[in-house]
């Protein structure tokens, strides 16, 4: 039994797929433009655990930040080195956050879903005093 391409895919299908592809490429472009326009490097990295702010740390200073969860157990470790932040340790099984690379520009983030940790770079936020003097 011979089957032709037409049995599997119609013109309308192709249009729909192309439309979705173009739509997501536009999104991608818009996000990229937004990203380059706001590409102020440096600043500080803000860490939130379960939606609550854990602390804000300046990127200029090399440091190792142990992130503790509600029970006080260190679940992840964020390292700031040469103006870039990366997750150097995680206690979750998949450790995806450790593969998310180094972040240094505004809006970039590292997300650890199992421990509900989000680290985001904000270039305009000044690190608050009580964190710096900690």
């Amino acid at each position: 039994m011979k089957r032709s391409m037409r049995d599997y895919i119609s013109k309308r299908d192709l249009f729909l797929i192309l439309f979705l592809l173009v739509l997501s490429c536009l999104f991608l472009l818009a996000f990229q433009i937004y990203h380059t326009m706001h590409k102020a490097r440096g600043g500080a990295v803000e860490i939130t655990v379960d939606g609550k702010i854990f602390g804000t740390y300046p990127l200029e200073k090399d440091q190792v930040i142990p992130i503790t969860n509600k029970k006080g157990v260190v679940s992840n470790t964020l390292t700031i080195k040469d103006g870039k932040a990366y997750m150097s340790h995680a206690n979750c099984p998949d450790r995806l956050c450790m593969h998310q690379g180094r972040i240094d520009s505004d809006g970039q983030s590292i997300v650890c879903l199992p421990n509900k940790i989000v680290c985001t770079v904000h270039s305009d936020t000044k690190p608050d005093m009580d964190v710096m003097t900690q």
């Binding site: 592809l21 997501s24 490429c25 999104f27 991608l28 996000f31 379960d50 939606g51 985001t120």
Partner: peptide, 20 residues
């Protein structure tokens, strides 16, 4: 919604293309 951080929506375009 769960992580209460909307910055992760930055992944949206990449995930859309990947899904296609």
């Amino acid at each position: 919604v769960l992580v209460k951080n909307y910055n992760i929506l930055f992944y949206l375009p990449v995930l859309m293309v990947a899904g296609i």
